[in-house]
Amino acid sequence: MKEKLWTLKFITLILSTFMLFLGFQMLLPTLPVYVKDHGGDSTSVGLVIGMFTITALIIRPFAGSAADRMGRKPILLIGLLITVISIFSYIIVTTVLLLLLLRLVHGLGWGMSTTIYGTIASDIVPSDRRGEGMGYFGLSISIAMMVGPLLGIWIMNVFGFFILFLLSALFSIGSLLLSNFKIYDSKGNNPRPANTRPFLETLFDVKALFPSLLMLIIAITYGGIVSFITLFAEEKQLDNVGWFFFANALCLIIIRPIAGKIFDRKGHFLVLFPGGILGITALFYISYTNSPIDLIVSAILYGFSFGLIQPSLQAWTINRSSPEKRGAANGTFFSAFDLGIGIGAILLGAYANFTSYSSMYKLSAFIFVIYLLVYGVYIWVSKNKKTSNKSVKRTISS
């Protein structure tokens, strides 16, 4: 009999995560416009997005390690407080330089809180339903991705940036309040005995490195999407770019539970390989976009691609790690995600400055090809190892 998945802890965790990501997603398509309005170019936009992810990257391993040693709750609350204060501070920032500095601080809070939410999810979800459970957990993020950008763009256009930043901060406060309810697993929230492992081993989980590498590669393309799709649409004179985010997130919502069940029953190949093919197709399609319909079609393709890959890689990461290193494993995984977004935002933004957004998305499609090559090498090496081990066993037995 399967363990119960939909507990009060799990539902409250999903709601709390949704509130945090909703406030965050409202800023994704609007901050590039804010930077442009204050005299920034594509490189400046890339830096504002990229530097945020760099500080999140730096803090995640420490947050995951601290969560394993001190418990989940104190690290989560500190991260959420930093997030709330940072978003409120956007209201008084008027220059690109100050915004960049504030984004560095915001990245610390974001990195801490999202790492711990993912760790709490891995504590709560039954091990035999991990792919399915992490898929449903990811729905809270996907729904925020669907609603947040549309809401953010509408508020920006109708009420301006003051109200936008205020509401974003209020949603983060909602996440902070909900996080004080019963979302903590009794084991995961207890400080663990003193660890005798070297300090660096508590920060990263070696077993999480390969799926995290794949996530890093995919996240580079995601950095190009979230940083520049609004400006790309403006360049092409396409209205209502919010529908790109809506369609993309709707497809994430549809595919995540399906991907999770396939992962649990059949393994990672049947989700990670098709996801890569869809990603290549999506980014080439974006590069040739000339109409709102083209933009929505590309969003659908990219949504299915990302929805197949991201939750499956996270579940694979957790499956490869031991319970006492889940915080470190999640920190490793999300650090790779952040690093990829940062690389994508900064390098692809600089590339777009010298070429065009269309050329930039063609380059992003090639990055998906690299993902498939790396994953293909892993499959080939794994099969050869299994064959070699079987041969050795036959030789010993004979």
Score class of each variant (00 low, 15 high):
M1R: 09
K2T: 00
K2N: 05
L5H: 04
W6Q: 01
T7V: 07
S16M: 04
T17L: 05
M19A: 15
M19Q: 05
L22Y: 01
M26Q: 04
P29E: 08
Y34I: 15
D37A: 12
G39N: 11
G46P: 08
V48H: 04
T55F: 13
A56N: 10
A63N: 02
A63T: 05
A66N: 15
R69D: 11
R69C: 06
P74V: 01
L77K: 00
L80F: 00
L81E: 07
V84D: 00
V84Y: 05
V96P: 03
L99T: 01
L104V: 07
W110D: 04
T114C: 02
I124W: 00
P126S: 02
S127H: 04
S127K: 04
G133V: 00
L139T: 02
L151S: 01
I153H: 01
I153F: 04
F159N: 15
F162G: 11
F162R: 13
I163F: 13
I163W: 10
S168Q: 09
L170I: 12
F171I: 08
F171V: 07
S175V: 03
L176P: 06
L178A: 06
I183G: 03
S186N: 10
G188S: 03
P191A: 06
F199I: 10
E201A: 12
F204D: 08
V206D: 06
A208F: 08
F210P: 04
L214T: 02
I220H: 14
Y222S: 09
F232W: 14
A233M: 12
A233T: 13
E234N: 08
E235T: 15
K236I: 09
F245Q: 06
L250T: 12
I254M: 11
R256K: 12
G260S: 01
G260Y: 00
F263E: 13
H268G: 14
G275M: 03
L278K: 13
I280C: 02
T281A: 14
A282H: 03
F284R: 05
S287T: 00
Y288W: 14
A299E: 09
I300M: 14
S312H: 02
L313E: 05
L313P: 01
W316E: 10
N319I: 13
R320P: 03
R320V: 11
S321Y: 03
N330E: 07
T332K: 12
F333Y: 11
F333P: 12
F333I: 13
F334P: 14
S335D: 13
L339S: 15
I341K: 08
A345D: 11
I346G: 12
L347M: 08
L347E: 12
A350N: 09
A352Q: 07
T355V: 04
T355C: 04
Y357E: 13
Y357S: 05
M360W: 05
Y361I: 06
K362T: 02
A365S: 05
I367S: 00
L372P: 01
Y375P: 04
Y375L: 04
Y375S: 06
V377R: 05
V381S: 09
N384A: 11
S388E: 15
I396H: 11
S398N: 15
